[in-house]
């Protein structure tokens, strides 16, 4: 895949992340849905360009609107890496790869995001997750563990939905645009 298509797809991935996050907020969904573009770029372009898409999404959002999102760029970058490596190994057209991605990221994203959230926000998000966080903190008396556990359910649903959405999109793309996701796996479900 040539460089110019890669540059354009990275930019499009960033835009999809931003629009997806905006739409999620507008519809008041209890999820994030702001890494669909990262996953799409990772699946088509590979893990490293996917990670770059994720990092630049947060950097751009930080520059344009809310600089507090910049530290979370590392989480978005790791999402790109995980999705890209799984797509490179297995392709991304079956039903198992998105499931693997969802389960891995449901734990990995909070592991990376919780220290940042605890340091910057005391573990608080300003959303519905705070209720769960408060209950867990009251019972466990551990700030990090409570913040981590409170984030797992939302991350699990969020990453599974995003991964399956990307899988369905990839299946319908023309073969010249599938990139590394065009690999057929042995187990096609």
């Amino acid at each position: 895949m040539n460089k110019k298509i890669a540059l354009a797809l990275i930019a499009i991935g960033i835009v999809i992340n931003i629009v997806g996050g905006t739409l999620n907020t507008a519809l008041k969904l209890p999820l994030f849905l702001d890494s669909i573009g990262t996953m799409l770029a990772a699946v088509i372009l590979g893990p490293w360009l996917g990670a770059l898409t994720g990092i630049l999404s947060n950097v751009f959002q930080g520059i344009a609107a809310d600089p507090i999102t910049i530290p979370f760029a590392i989480v978005n970058g790791v999402i790109g890496l995980v999705v890209g490596f799984i797509a490179r190994k297995r392709g991304f057209q079956d039903y198992v790869s998105p499931l693997l991605v969802g389960i891995i990221l449901a734990f990995l994203a909070p592991i990376l995001g919780t220290p940042i959230a605890v340091y910057l926000f005391g573990g608080v998000t300003g959303g519905g997750v705070d209720i769960l966080y408060t209950v867990l903190l009251n019972s466990s008396h551990e700030i990090f563990a409570s913040a981590f556990l409170a984030r797992i359910p939302a991350n699990l649903f969020d990453k599974l939905i995003s991964a399956y959405l990307v899988m369905f999109i990839i299946r319908r793309l023309p073969s010249n645009l599938k990139g590394i996701a065009g690999k057929e796996t042995n187990l096609v479900v």
Binding site: N2, K4, I5, L7, A8, L9, A11, I12, V15, I16, V19, G20, L23, N24, L27, L29, L33, I36, L40, L165, I169, L173, L177
Partner: peptide, 21 residues
């Protein structure tokens, strides 16, 4: 509702990406 709105946007964005390239 989110999926119904976002999927056409993603498709248009990918087409636009090809044009940009």
């Amino acid at each position: 509702a989110y999926l119904v709105i976002l999927i056409p946007i993603i498709v248009k964005a990918l087409v636009r990406g090809q044009v940009i390239a």
